[in-house]
Amino acid sequence: MGVWVISEYRETLQRVSMELIGKARELSDELNEELTAVVLGWKISDCADFLIQHGADHVIFIEHELLQHYTAGGYTKVLSKLINERKPSIVLIGATHIGRDLAPRLAARLKTGLTADCTHLEIDPNTKNLLMTRPAFSGNLMATIECPVHRPQMATVRPGVFPMPCANPSRKGTVESIEPDLSDEDLLVIVEKVMKIEKSSIDISEAKIVVSGGRGVGSKKGFDILHELAEALGGTVAGSRGAVEAGWIEKEKQVGQTGKIIKPKLYIACGISGAIQHIAGMHESEYIIAINKDPEAPIMSIADLAVVGDLHKIVPQLTKLIREHKLSCKALIA
C-alpha cells in the first residue's frame, strides 16, 4: 500500500517532482493511503519540510556519496531494494531525461509494468487501480492503461501536466534517512566530472510568454519574425509538431501531446491550425492570441483574441508597435 513519488533532486528539487506531489496527494486521499516522497542524493535533507508542506506524509532520504550524481546502476539498485521491502502500490516518476532512463530499468527489476509519458492519472472507482493515460500512435489518440495484476503500478509523467500544489506551513509529516549498501561496482559507470552547459534559450515549459509557429510560417527563415516578436516581448519561441518535423525548430521547442505541456501567461499561435494534439499542450495558457489566414481553424475557437490575416504582415507590425511602446515608456520614465 501507499503512493510513492521519486522526487528528482539536482542541486534543488525539480519542478515536475513537486507537480507529482500535488497529483499524488489527490490519489492518496482517494485511496486513503500514505503519500511518500523518496529523494536520492548526498546532503539533501534540507528539502524535507518543503515536501511535507506541499503534500507528502512521509519523506525518505536515501543518502550516499555515490548517489550525488545520477547513475542508472546505483539508483536502480537502491530503489528496487527499498520498493521490494516496503511494497508501495503506486510509484510515480517525472518524465525527465533521468526519469525516462531510470523508470524502465526499475520496472524491469521489479517485474512490473510501466506507462511512460502520462498526461492524466486517476483512480478507477470500482477496482481502485491506477488508470494511466498517455498519447499513442504519434499523438493521434489517447490510451488509458491499467496494471491490474502486478505491483507497484508505475508511471512517468510529463513536466507541466499537473499544477504546482500550494504550500501548507501547518502540515506535519515524518522523515526517515537511509544509508544504502552501495559500492563502486554497483554503479557500472563512474561519473568523474560534471560540466554544465548554459542554456541558450528559455525552457518553453518555464516561459511566461511563448510565441509559437506552425506550418503556416512557411519555412525556417519565416521563424525569424517570431524570434523578433518573442525578443520584444521578453518571451521565447516554440513550434507545432509540423514545424518540428519540417526541421524549422528544435524538438525540445515542440508544444503538444508529443512535445511539452505548457501554461504561459501569454501564448501567441502563428500559422497553427490547432490540431487536438497541439491544443492539449497549450489550452491552459492564461491568454491565447491566434494569427491565422483561416477563420475556421480550430485554434481560432479557443483563442481569447483571434486575428485573421497574413502572419508575415501582422507579426512584424506587432513587433514594431511593441518596440515603439517600450521606447515611449522609457522616455516617460527618463
Results as ranks from 00 to 15, higher is better:
195 M>D: 15
216 G>A: 11
159 P>F: 02
174 T>L: 03
161 V>E: 13
203 D>Q: 06
151 R>L: 11
194 V>C: 09
168 N>L: 06
200 S>C: 08
197 I>S: 08
176 E>N: 03
167 A>V: 03
188 L>K: 14
187 L>H: 01
169 P>T: 13
171 R>H: 09
154 M>A: 02
180 P>R: 07
163 P>W: 12
213 G>K: 08
191 V>L: 05
218 G>E: 10
209 I>C: 05
171 R>T: 09
218 G>K: 09
182 L>C: 06
161 V>M: 14
165 P>R: 02
148 P>W: 06
204 I>N: 14
203 D>L: 10
176 E>Y: 00
164 M>D: 11
155 A>S: 14
168 N>W: 00
181 D>K: 00
176 E>P: 04
172 K>H: 07
147 C>Q: 15
188 L>F: 11
220 K>H: 04
192 E>V: 00
191 V>K: 09
184 D>I: 03
210 V>A: 05
181 D>F: 00
159 P>R: 12
184 D>V: 09
184 D>E: 11
151 R>N: 07
175 V>L: 13
211 V>P: 13
180 P>T: 01
221 K>R: 04
185 E>F: 03
188 L>C: 07
151 R>E: 05
164 M>P: 04
174 T>I: 01
153 Q>L: 11
215 R>I: 05
153 Q>Y: 05
167 A>C: 09
159 P>Q: 14
203 D>E: 15
169 P>W: 06
177 S>W: 05
197 I>G: 05
156 T>F: 13
192 E>T: 10
203 D>T: 08
166 C>M: 14
177 S>M: 04
187 L>D: 07
163 P>R: 09
210 V>I: 14
220 K>S: 11
158 R>G: 05
175 V>S: 08
174 T>E: 12
186 D>R: 00
207 A>C: 05
204 I>H: 04
177 S>Y: 02
198 E>Y: 01
196 K>W: 05
190 I>L: 14
152 P>R: 05
190 I>V: 12
180 P>I: 00
180 P>H: 03
173 G>D: 06
213 G>C: 13
189 V>K: 10
212 S>A: 06
204 I>T: 02
213 G>A: 07
190 I>A: 13
173 G>T: 11
206 E>F: 07
185 E>N: 04
164 M>R: 08
167 A>N: 08
176 E>M: 01
190 I>P: 15
206 E>Y: 10
174 T>A: 12
196 K>F: 09
178 I>G: 00
200 S>E: 15
168 N>Y: 07
150 H>R: 10
218 G>Y: 07
153 Q>S: 03
199 K>G: 13
214 G>L: 01
220 K>E: 15
184 D>A: 09
165 P>V: 04
194 V>S: 12
195 M>N: 15
187 L>V: 06
171 R>N: 10
178 I>V: 12
164 M>T: 11
163 P>H: 08
149 V>S: 15
157 V>C: 13
215 R>A: 02
194 V>Q: 13
204 I>L: 07
176 E>R: 10
218 G>Q: 11
168 N>R: 10
183 S>W: 06
147 C>R: 12
201 S>D: 14
200 S>M: 08
165 P>W: 02
216 G>D: 12
176 E>W: 00
211 V>Q: 11
